[in-house]
C-alpha cells in the first residue's frame, strides 16, 4: 500500500509585505532632504581692459550706500547725505529709484564690516526695486 504523504506547503507570509514597503516609503519620504539653494542673485560687471569700456555715469544718477565697519548705513545722493537705519533703507531707496530708472545704487561696504551687513542691505536694495546695483569696497 502506498501511503500518501500530506505535506504542508511551505510559504512566506506576504500579507505584511505592503506594511513593510510603506514603512520604508515613509522613511525615505521623511528623510529625503532636497538641498534647495536660495540666495540673492547679482551679475558682476566684466573687467574692463581699456578705458574705452568705461561708461560715464551722470553723478545725479548715482546713489551711494555706504556701510561702515560697525554696520552703520549712510545713503549719499547727489545733493544729500544721511544716516539711514536698516529698516528704513528699503523705503528710502524705493523713493529714490522709483522716479529714475537709470539710477545706479552703489553699495560700498567697509572691508572690516561683516558679510551679514552687506547681505541685509543688498536684500533691502533688491526689495526696493533697484535694478542697477554695484558692489564695491574701500
Amino acid at each position: 500500500m502506498i501511503r500518501r504523504k500530506r505535506k504542508d506547503m511551505g510559504g512566506i507570509p506576504t500579507s505584511s509585505m505592503s506594511d513593510v514597503a510603506f514603512l520604508l516609503l515613509v522613511f525615505f519620504l521623511s528623510t529625503t532632504k532636497f538641498d534647495v539653494k536660495k540666495g540673492l542673485g547679482i551679475n558682476l560687471p566684466p573687467v574692463s581692459q581699456n578705458a574705452k569700456n568705461k561708461v560715464k555715469i551722470n553723478p545725479k544718477n548715482v546713489t551711494k550706500v555706504w556701510i561702515d565697519a560697525e554696520g552703520v548705513i549712510t545713503v549719499k545722493t547727489f545733493d544729500s547725505e544721511e544716516l539711514v537705519p536698516l529698516n528704513q533703507l528699503e523705503t528710502k531707496i524705493r523713493k529714490i529709484v522709483s522716479g529714475n530708472s537709470d539710477m545706479v545704487v552703489s553699495l560700498k561696504t567697509d572691508r572690516k564690516s561683516k558679510y551679514q551687513n552687506m547681505v541685509q542691505a543688498l536684500d533691502k536694495l533688491q526689495a526696493a526695486g533697484a535694478e542697477k546695483i554695484s558692489l564695491s569696497t574701500n
Partner: peptide, 22 residues
C-alpha cells in the same frame, strides 16, 4: 569680513564668472 568677499568677487570678475549669488 567683507574684505575677503570683495577680493573673491574681483577674482570672479577676472575669471569672467559674472553670475553670482549670495
Amino acid at each position: 569680513n567683507y574684505g575677503i568677499m570683495s577680493d573673491i568677487l574681483n577674482q570672479l570678475r577676472e575669471a569672467n564668472a559674472l553670475r553670482v549669488s549670495f
